[in-house]
């Protein structure tokens, strides 16, 4: 009985344990540095919100095979799954 109680107490203590998975929000927050808080861009960087979700995903996938632009270098590290989850956050 005391062991069960002990395990319950311990489970509260390990609330701060970190999942190995990277949550999409952590990746997506970095996009705002250039694209702006609301993804509306500015006179130098286009608004992402002008695109629909499918076009956004298509463009991001294209960046993976593209040249050596800043976007290509940023996107090449992301998986297709990452891109789709980021799109969910931006467009939902």
């Amino acid at each position: 009985m005391i062991n069960v109680f002990f395990i319950i107490i311990l489970s509260f203590c390990f609330k701060y344990s970190v999942s190995n998975e990277i949550k999409p929000i952590v990746i997506e927050e970095n996009c705002k540095s250039c694209h702006g808080k609301d993804y509306l861009g500015n006179k130098y960087i286009k608004s992402i919100k002008d695109l629909d979700r499918e076009t956004f995903i298509k463009k991001m996938k294209n960046y993976k095979n593209k040249d050596n632009s800043v976007m290509s270098r940023i996107v090449k590290v992301l998986s297709v799954d990452d891109i789709e989850k980021i799109a969910e956050i931006i467009y939902d």
């Binding site: 609330k15 701060y16 970190v18 999942s19 998975e21 990277i22 952590v26 540095s33 800043v70 940023i74």
Partner: peptide
């Protein structure tokens, strides 16, 4: 809020 920490990832350009 006593929630689990998120696993970090960072970007620099």
């Amino acid at each position: 809020l006593q929630k689990a920490y998120l696993n970090p990832v960072f970007l620099n350009t």
